[in-house]
């Protein structure tokens, strides 16, 4: 079986695996990184949202063989070490996570790692266009929350963006 090498949360990993296995299962079942959740396996629910080289992506829809040695995967566990985490009061948190706590967003919490990773990527995408995140940007986020925490998510994204 081939060996696959890439970076996860700043650490270089080598995994022997059938090349077709999607990254979500490498993270969860092989590496024990369980922050990214399963909710559909077909890139719809977005519960598994993580970052690949700083951009939001869904590891349920990427084969492990499609990662190269320089590809850097960041899951919710690695977010506090992101370059834009400096504005956090607590060094073990990203400002977006702090905003989430301040707004008491989570209910069951199952969707929230994905929501936070999507929120950070949405703010970054707006900044790349030289602007701040808008309500229209938030409207376009596809992550489902079956507990219906959308209103507090909206407030938290705006607060987190201010501190990012």
């Amino acid at each position: 079986m081939p060996t696959h090498t890439f970076l996860v949360n700043g650490r270089r990993v080598q995994v022997e695996s059938d090349p077709d296995v999607r990254l979500l299962w490498i993270l969860r079942d092989r590496l024990g990184i369980t922050g990214p959740k399963y909710g559909c396996g077909i890139n719809v629910c977005k519960a598994c949202t993580s970052h690949l080289n700083g951009r939001a992506f869904n590891p349920c829809a990427v084969r492990v063989a499609d990662l190269g040695p320089d590809d850097e995967v960041t899951t919710i566990e690695g977010l506090p070490a992101a370059p834009d985490a400096g504005g956090a009061e607590d060094p073990d948190l990203h400002p977006m996570q702090e905003a989430w706590i301040a707004q008491d967003v989570a209910q069951c919490g199952y969707c929230q790692p994905g929501q936070i990773m999507a929120a950070v990527a949405t703010v970054r995408a707006a900044r790349r266009e030289g602007r701040e995140v808008t309500d229209a940007d938030i409207d376009a986020i596809r992550n489902i929350c079956r507990c219906g925490t959308y209103f507090r998510i909206r407030e938290a994204i705006k607060e987190g963006a201010r501190r990012m």
């Binding site: 969860r28 024990g32 369980t34 922050g35 990214p36 959740k37 399963y38 899951t75 919710i76 566990e77 506090p80 073990d92 948190l93 996570q97 989430w100 706590i101 301040a102 008491d104 967003v105 989570a106 919490g109 199952y110 929230q112 790692p113 936070i116």
Partner: peptide
């Protein structure tokens, strides 16, 4: 009062059945 598991939920530490080893 903010939820007692608020931090665990946003850091990915909160464990659900499929996260148990």
């Amino acid at each position: 009062h903010t939820r007692v598991d608020a931090r665990a939920a946003v850091t990915g530490q909160k464990q659900f059945a499929m996260d148990l080893e």
